[in-house]
Computed example of a mutant assay.
Amino acid sequence: MRTKRGIILVLFLLVIGFLLLSLQLEEHYLWISFGFIICTILIVVIRFEQRPLEAREIVLLAILAAIASLGRIPFASIPSVQPTTFIIMMSGIVFGAESGFMIGLVAALASNMILGQGPWTPWQMAAWGLVGLSAGLLRNTPFLKYKWGKILFSICWGFLFGWIMNLWGLLAGAGSGVPLDIKTILAYYSASALFDTMHAVSNVFFLLVFGNTWVKLLTRFKRKYGLLQS
């Protein structure tokens, strides 16, 4: 058990390493993104090492990631409004932290194949991966058992996602000679406040309208076909 936890910790540290490496090797963002995916797949495999990870379970994760990524496209013209965060959150709540993390990473990489890849891709992957990871870690707590908790969680990640992407912008700018001082940081985060608010509001909207349906649907698949059981 300790060995398994140690390996998972090393893989998470590698993910963080890839994230920091993306600031120095911006032109290699695609390779860094694939490194994210490989580490996350290994985490999921190790998590379920007591029984084989079936092909249908991998297919389910791929389908959910595809739905989350395609959800960005119809809303591409409306900044920060999309159902991707909601879908990743619901997946993490039903299937757990590791699965939610991988769905978030793949969704960001896949959707950017259409909307545009760039040095921001690994950071989007990390941000959406953390949505699924945190939802999975908190899924059995009273916080996410009630609708008010899910609403608060959705609002928080509407802003946290933007703040993580702002951090990438600031660090990337600092590498190009832009001064990283309090004035710059406040101006950067203030400029994104409207978009972060729109993201939070859209998360709550999708949760209130589709939340119960998604949880029931995914839970039914999980129980009926025995998918991704701990």
Rank of each mutant, 00 (worst) to 15 (best):
F75K: 05
A76R: 12
S77Q: 14
I78F: 08
P79F: 05
S80C: 13
V81D: 04
Q82P: 00
M89I: 02
M90A: 12
G92Q: 05
G92C: 04
V94F: 00
F95Y: 11
G96D: 04
E98Q: 09
E98N: 04
S99Y: 13
M102V: 15
L105V: 15
V106K: 00
A107S: 14
A108G: 02
S111F: 13
N112T: 11
M113Q: 14
M113L: 15
I114L: 15
G116Y: 03
G116L: 04
G118S: 11
P119C: 09
W120K: 10
A127D: 10
G129T: 11
G132Y: 00
G132T: 00
L133D: 08
S134W: 07
G136L: 10
G136M: 09
L138S: 05
L138A: 12
R139F: 03
T141E: 08
T141S: 15
F143N: 01
F143R: 01
L144I: 06
L144C: 07
L144K: 05
K145T: 02
W148D: 01
G149N: 02
K150C: 08
I151K: 00
I151R: 01
L152I: 01
L152Q: 02
F153D: 00
F153A: 00
S154H: 03
S154V: 03
C156F: 07
C156R: 03
W157R: 03
W157K: 03
F159L: 13
F159W: 12
F161Y: 14
W163D: 05
W163Q: 06
M165H: 02
N166G: 10
N166I: 09
W168M: 10
L170D: 08
L171S: 08
L171M: 13
L171Y: 13
A172F: 15
A172N: 02
G173V: 13
A174D: 06
G175K: 11
G175C: 04
G175Y: 09
G177I: 06
V178H: 06
V178F: 06
D181K: 04
I182H: 08
K183H: 12
K183D: 11
T184W: 07
I185H: 07
I185A: 07
Y188A: 12
